[in-house]
Design a protein around this nucleic acid. Structure first.
Lengths: 345, 345
DNA sequence: ACCGGCATGGCAAGCGGTTGCCATCTGTTG
DNA sequence: CAACAGATGGCAACCGCTTGCCATGCCGGT
């Protein structure tokens, strides 16, 4: 019946074990690791050696209790399934690792409630938080920021440090690209109203359009997904525009499909530009022209910022850190066919 | 210079605060939460109420120290950037959340060393580990499993519980699908030699091919990426096969592109089947026929298994939990053109 | 009236580090 | 040679929660 308690998981060695083996007090062992200068160099060396022999590793939990330093950062992702976030996570993870931190990933599943609950569970265990694509309200975010140093990605929240990509510049490049190709009017396909980025992009497009003398329409909002884009295709068809800029790549991809299904050719009849350069943007036919954000750099920047605050720096809340965007031109954009792009028939 | 210590982060209430407010001993408060039956129902209720008023939340770190129960699980991902893992993470995350656990995500960045180090840092803080697409050796994995309950995903390691999708069945379906379309020969494009799944898939294909009377070739190994697939296109061209099954979707997608670039039509000249049904498989032209694994279910199953072990169940190491696969037929497969698929000219 | 047993709550000893403060020793300095 | 500062190590009190064990009170049973 009862098996003879086989490969028992033995207790790992503690500072007490090391102290005994080295003939010093536990506190000395502790200091040998956490406050190197505080103890005689030779003693420290000896302790280190013995600790290594015993296979001692400082228990992060035990350290965390009195000091609050858990060496963990939470990274909240709006939707872990969305490939857009992969590179951000990668960047965050590597910056964290460099600083000896570990990333606690929280998937918000695109839901305010889920996000709150998951964050709540994770919060007490982490030293800081990165919020990306948060669905929470500004005030909820400020609440979080009160409890732990927080950095917001791709969104600006008053009094909370943030890192964003240069939407305005990206949009300007996209608009200029279309104008250069000869388009005279462009339609913006909007994403979720609640999205900070959507507002930002729309505003930037308005400015750019004014500068370039482009006529502008806007349809939406649509869900920022491929089906959402297919939905939008209908609206775009009605507009009769020769060029479209979508809130993000998913929307743009869905849009292209919807258009093509309706017999509209891309880019011959309609040029399409997306945002984000997700994995997949280059896979579709035609390849999607899109505004790429420096995803990995964003992740890094966010974590770096967090860590510097943890190190005692003042959080930079005055204005967001903005990282440059880049226009990736692929086959989904081209010159307008004659007779289109000059407004409704 | 020194700012007047503004919105000070105040210490959150502890069981001591609650105990004082309720006029009981701290131990009673503790029990009111962790061992409900152990304390008088009314007392417990009162304590709960007061705790709620004070905004008390049990500090997971403090709980973890004496008990070792951190309520955290590590999930090691071979490459967080690979969309394949997104759904697995989602499944794992939700199963974990249901059980009150939080996921610590570790990105191995496709590197043995990175994986080891990151895991090492995370290990002491978690109660269990899910390894997906691990790059570590079997013995390294067994080491990990000795330290913490571990479940391996999509790989079998002796003495370590694992969850895999039914590669054999999936492969059989793919092979039969091709046979039904009239193909008489198929080429397998192999992935990394070190990959457990690759070996599994190749073996299964051999069996299926024998059953169905298909002739079989194998080329590779190639890196399991889109560029890897483009590379493979050349080899496939030389084989002159009418149907190809690739180790995974990335390879298959790259392959299709390479083929198309060389003027070979898919599926008219060559049919292509992939594995995994990643985001993107349906975006390419033509849509990729692929063997889909129940990703989310796998993630769930792994975490469920882990949690049951943590709950005292005996780990199921005898044989892997195998989840059914599914063939997703899209446009990349069709009947062979006459004159092809009957072997080399 | 006495005893065993159960329900309930408190005491105190951890869990494994960290750290303020004190004791000791050594080397300076006047 | 006394006074003193700096370097080094130890003591012990935490951090917040868990839990084995004991004390008390109350009940039914004999």
């Amino acid at each position: 019946m009862a098996d003879p308690d086989p490969p028992e998981r033995r207790h790992p060695p503690t500072i007490y074990d090391v102290a005994r083996a080295a003939g010093v007090a536990p506190s000395t062992v502790s200091r040998a690791f956490s406050r190197p200068g505080r103890v005689n160099a030779e003693t420290a060396e000896r302790i280190r050696r013995i600790a290594a022999e015993l296979g001692y590793r400082t228990n992060p939990l035990a350290r965390a209790l009195p000091t609050g330093r858990t060496s963990m950062l939470a990274c909240v992702i709006a939707d872990i399934t969305n490939p857009f976030y992969g590179e951000i996570i990668r960047g965050a993870e590597s910056a964290a690792a460099e600083a000896g931190y570990v990333l606690l990933l929280v998937d918000a599943q695109e839901s305010d409630r889920q996000e709150r609950e998951a964050l709540d569970r994770a919060l007490p265990a982490v030293e800081g938080v990165v919020l990306t694509g948060s669905r929470m309200s500004d005030s909820a975010i400020r609440m979080t920021a009160k409890q732990r140093p927080t950095v917001v990605l791709n969104r600006e929240v008053a009094d909370v440090p943030s890192v964003v990509s240069d939407n305005a510049q990206g949009m300007r490049m996209a608009a200029r690209h279309l104008a250069d190709l000869g388009h005279r009017a462009v339609t913006y396909v909007a994403g979720p109203e609640a999205s900070w980025a959507d507002g930002m992009r729309w505003r930037s497009l308005r400015e750019a359009a004014a500068e370039l003398g482009l006529r502008l329409n806007r349809i939406g909002p649509y869900p920022p997904t491929i089906p959402g884009g297919t939905l939008a295709a209908e609206g775009v068809g009605r507009q009769g525009a020769s060029a479209v800029i979508a809130y993000n790549d998913q929307l743009a991809i869905g849009l292209m499909r919807g258009l093509q299904a309706a017999g509209v050719r891309v880019p011959e009849d309609v040029s399409v530009v997306g945002f984000d350069n997700i994995f997949g943007a280059e896979l579709v036919t035609p390849g999607l022209t899109t505004v790429a954000a420096p995803l990995r750099a964003q992740g890094r920047a966010a974590v770096r910022g967090l860590i510097s605050v943890l190190g005692g720096a003042r959080p930079r809340t005055a204005q967001a850190v903005v990282l440059p965007a880049r226009l990736v031109v692929r086959a989904s954009t081209g010159g307008p066919a004659p007779g289109r792009g000059h407004g409704r028939p």
